[in-house]
Amino acid sequence: MQSKDLTGNGPRSTGGAVPSRREELLATAAEVFARQGYDATTVREIADAAGILAGSLYYHFDSKESILDEILSGFLDELWTGYDAVLGAGLGPRATLEALVVESFREIDRHHDAVAIYQRERHLAGQPRFGYLAESMHRFEHIWQGTLERGVAEGEFRADLDLRLAYRFVRDTVWVAASWYRPGGRHDAAEIARQYLGLLLDGIAAH
């Protein structure tokens, strides 16, 4: 099982490589969890969606909890790898915010179902096995609100911003996209990020 490496050193996507049977099963389980919810989903339903017997699923995973753990930790490993690359680039506050938004939409595109699960199952952060979810949420807030604070201090963002409110607005409007964005749709992740940043930073009024 993947380690929950939140320092950004976790494994990334293999790109064009043919997915393994394990990866296919994880993708199927993620789709079922995202659609039905974790608690409402049974191992048999995952197996049925994958076209195998329930007992065969246990050849790859020891429990439904292990499947969810691997889905979420894999998504977060990749997210933090991308975020850490942005933060290590030495960009100014506005450029950092823009790059974080772009990376976020990329991850929504790559891990659409995992993002939906992450949004829906946050209560699991209180369980010992999923404690890394709470750590990730805290780190996410620190990075995004810190970027906004730095932008105000350096004169790149408005001085009258309510930073807490601005952080919550940016956080929620980025990640809620998982509820309506579908990979392969009319707009790709890069275009969605471009449109979003235009609205966020320049507004909708004609100048």
Rank of each mutant, 00 (worst) to 15 (best):
E141L: 15
W144M: 14
E78W: 06
S73M: 04
S73R: 00
E107N: 14
T81K: 14
A95L: 09
L163W: 06
A89W: 10
E156L: 08
P128Y: 07
I71R: 01
R94S: 05
L76K: 00
G146E: 06
I117K: 00
A134D: 07
E149L: 11
L161S: 10
Y83R: 11
G131V: 09
L148R: 07
L97N: 04
L97K: 07
L124T: 03
V86H: 01
R129V: 12
G82I: 10
A114I: 04
L148C: 08
L87F: 04
F157R: 01
G74V: 05
W144S: 13
D109L: 04
V86R: 00
I143S: 02
D160E: 08
Q145I: 15
L72V: 07
L133Y: 03
L163D: 08
Y118R: 03
A153W: 13
V152G: 06
A153R: 15
F75C: 05
F75T: 02
A125R: 13
D162S: 10
E156C: 09
H142C: 14
A166N: 09
H111P: 06
G90V: 07
G151V: 00
L124D: 00
Y118E: 05
S104R: 00
L165K: 12
Q145R: 14
V101A: 07
F157S: 02
H112E: 11
G82A: 13
I71E: 04
G155M: 02
V86L: 01
L87G: 03
G92T: 11
E149P: 04
L79Y: 01
G92E: 09
A116T: 11
Y132S: 05
A116G: 13
L97S: 03
T96H: 04
A114P: 07
R110M: 07
T147S: 11
H111V: 03
I71D: 02
H112K: 08
L79S: 08
Y132K: 03
I71P: 00
L79Q: 06
E78N: 10
G88K: 08
R150N: 15
A116P: 09
E70I: 09
I117L: 04
L124P: 00
Q119W: 06
A85M: 14
F157D: 04
F157Q: 03
D109T: 07
A166T: 14
H123A: 15
G74E: 03
E107I: 12
I117E: 03
H123R: 14
E70G: 11
H111W: 09
L163G: 12
T96K: 02
R106C: 01
I71Q: 04
F130D: 00
P93R: 08
A125K: 12
D160A: 07
A159M: 12
A134T: 05
R122T: 15
D113M: 02
H142Q: 15
D109C: 09
L161A: 10
F130S: 01
E70F: 11
A114E: 02
V86G: 00
L163M: 12
D109K: 05
T147L: 13
